[in-house]
């Protein structure tokens, strides 16, 4: 196996610091995200989980006044290197945000948006893509008769699955979830969780969640953050049943939320 193959799907974070103006939002993060596993980032609100996740695809740079230092190696390449083309990073990272954001176009065009952006012109291929990824997101049966109606007409749970399919259609290596079920009803949440569990064989998945129970259900690996720092990280079972740090203990036992 070549070096590049070996690195595919890997993320190493080294001495990552993020400042919003004067505020030191992320403090010296060091971590390796395990490949083809589902990693959950947990911690009380305001601890920097979402900020951290937004570093993965450099969406953090859409904020004003952000300063970033340190290394964020994706497949062995520092994504904050000025020479890196930002769109190629984002193409590697599928994002599922807190609430679904269907693009203002049809269901069909939502899925083909990514491929078209990246230069795909072949109509037949795109039709196949649409069917394939809608099936992957278990949405095909529900929408196959109205592919050309506006995506905004779908229910919010369907929209989130559409967003998942849309993200998968650009063939990412990673899937990022920023509390992806927080706006959904319990049944839709379950759908998404189920999908994540199925997908982790092919993708490296990182999910920010505020729900400890969700982390318990789906995570293989857990990162606990507090006030911009990584306090503790490790395999889910170990970390949850036998936390080493007092803060982690408090959080896991529910004394801090």
């Amino acid at each position: 196996m070549s070096q590049i193959e070996n690195n595919k799907g890997s993320i190493q974070v080294q001495n990552l610091n993020v400042y919003y103006g004067e505020r030191h939002a992320l403090k010296n993060l060091n971590i390796e995200i395990p490949k083809h596993k589902l990693t959950a980032i947990i911690g009380p609100s305001g601890c920097g989980k979402t900020t951290f996740l937004k570093c993965f695809n450099r969406l953090i740079e859409t904020n004003e006044n952000v300063n970033i230092t340190g290394q964020f190696l994706v497949d062995g390449q520092n994504i904050f290197d000025p020479k890196v083309e930002i769109t190629s990073i984002r193409k590697k990272m599928g994002l599922l945000s807190q609430r679904p954001y269907p693009l203002p176009m049809s269901i069909y065009d939502n899925i083909t948006y990514g491929p078209r952006i990246h230069g795909e012109r072949n109509k037949t291929k795109m039709a196949e893509t649409v069917e394939y990824y809608l099936k992957q997101a278990s949405l095909w049966e529900e929408v196959k008769d109205r592919l050309h109606s506006p995506a905004s007409a779908l229910s919010i749970g369907q929209q989130q699955r559409l967003c998942l399919a849309r993200g998968l259609a650009v063939a990412p290596e990673f899937i990022l979830g920023d509390e992806p079920t927080s706006a959904l009803d319990p049944i839709s949440s379950k759908h998404i969780e189920q999908k994540f569990i199925e997908l982790k064989n092919q993708y490296t998945i990182v999910v920010v969640t505020h729900s400890l129970r969700q982390a318990r259900r789906i995570a293989d690996y857990i990162v606990f953050m507090y006030l911009g720092e990584i306090i503790e990280h490790g395999p889910a079972k170990e970390l949850l049943s036998n936390p080493q740090h007092q803060l982690t203990k408090d959080y896991v036992t529910g004394e801090m939320s």
Binding site: L59, S88, M93, S97, Y101, G114
Partner: peptide
Amino acid sequence: KEASLSLGA
């Protein structure tokens, strides 16, 4: 807008 950016647009 982020949804579109995150697809690599």
